[in-house]
């Protein structure tokens, strides 16, 4: 059968969701941000809530998320996305509000806002993309950089004695009573992407049921910052990031998983 006979609208089984704009993504080739954007928008589309969803973009690589997600978006000062989302949600309690943040935004400068939004149990969704490095500014050490991992500000590797330990933000906020659903996922393989999408769906359902804050961490790669090609970066992530940031649900239905 000729390919032209297969490529017809009636045979279509998968294409990019209409909730992603046609603007070319500003991310490096192979960056997990694009996949994380897309599955978030797919969940919004499947739930039919695109007219009632408001996203808050962070500062970092994903600062232009409002250009790519074809829904109502705003953009917050560095690290303040959970505070802005709190304001939006309290003004319009019936809207779905989510923040999309990287590790530099959420765990470093925004640690305080994140912690307190989680502790207050704001009824929002936080999507946290963790790649263990500051991507946009050129690969500096982040709070989540692994021990011994090289970055432009830790050229001999992160030394625990002087630079401290990587921050497990997701485990930390799972301890707070305000959070209802806390999970850690990845987007490097088809199976992981499908699982991450299910987790984001549960997060938005949590918000619909007004049960509390839902927090989805997505462990991702930064092939430019790690100085690898995209496929090697994904393999490196599996070998090095996952032992320190193990995938899986941490808190389900408001109860910690032991």
């Amino acid at each position: 059968m000729d390919i032209k006979e297969i490529i017809k609208p009636e045979n279509l089984v998968y294409q990019k969701t209409k909730l992603m704009t046609d603007a070319p993504l500003s991310y490096c080739p192979g960056c997990g941000h694009g996949t994380a954007h897309r599955i978030t928008m797919e969940v919004v589309e499947e739930m039919g809530i695109w007219e009632d969803t408001i996203g808050v973009a962070p500062v970092g690589c994903s600062v232009l998320a409002y250009d790519f997600m074809n829904i109502d978006m705003t953009q917050a000062a560095h690290g303040r996305a959970p505070a802005v989302a709190t304001g939006i949600k309290r003004t319009w309690p019936e809207k779905f509000v989510f923040t999309y943040q990287g590790d530099g935004d959420l765990a470093a400068i925004g640690g305080n806002e994140t912690l307190h939004a989680c502790n207050r149990g704001e009824n929002i969704v936080i999507i946290f993309v963790n790649n263990g490095i500051y991507g946009m500014t050129g690969g500096q050490m982040a709070p989540t950089t692994l021990p011994g991992m090289k970055s432009s500000t830790s050229p001999y590797g992160r030394d625990i004695a002087t630079m401290g330990h990587p921050l497990k933000m997701t485990e930390l906020i799972a301890q707070l009573p305000g959070t209802y659903f806390v999970t850690r996922q990845a987007v490097h393989t088809p199976a992981a992407v499908r699982k991450a999408k299910k987790a984001i769906r549960i997060a938005f359902e949590t918000q619909r049921e007004k049960k509390g804050l839902a927090f989805v961490e997505i462990v991702s790669n930064c092939n430019s910052g790690w100085k690898m090609n995209p496929v090697d970066a994904n393999n490196w992530m599996v070998d090095n990031m996952f032992p320190y940031f193990p995938l899986g649900d941490i808190k389900v239905n408001g109860e910690l998983i032991k």
Binding site: I6, I7, K8, N11, L12, V13, Y14, Q15, K16, T17, M20, P24, L25, Y27, P29, G30, C31, G32, H33, G34, T35, R38, V187, H188, T189, P190, V193
Partner: peptide, 10 residues
């Protein structure tokens, strides 16, 4: 898995 969503499948 395509980060840029450039693939359509039939």
């Amino acid at each position: 898995v395509c980060p840029d969503g450039v693939i359509s499948v039939y």
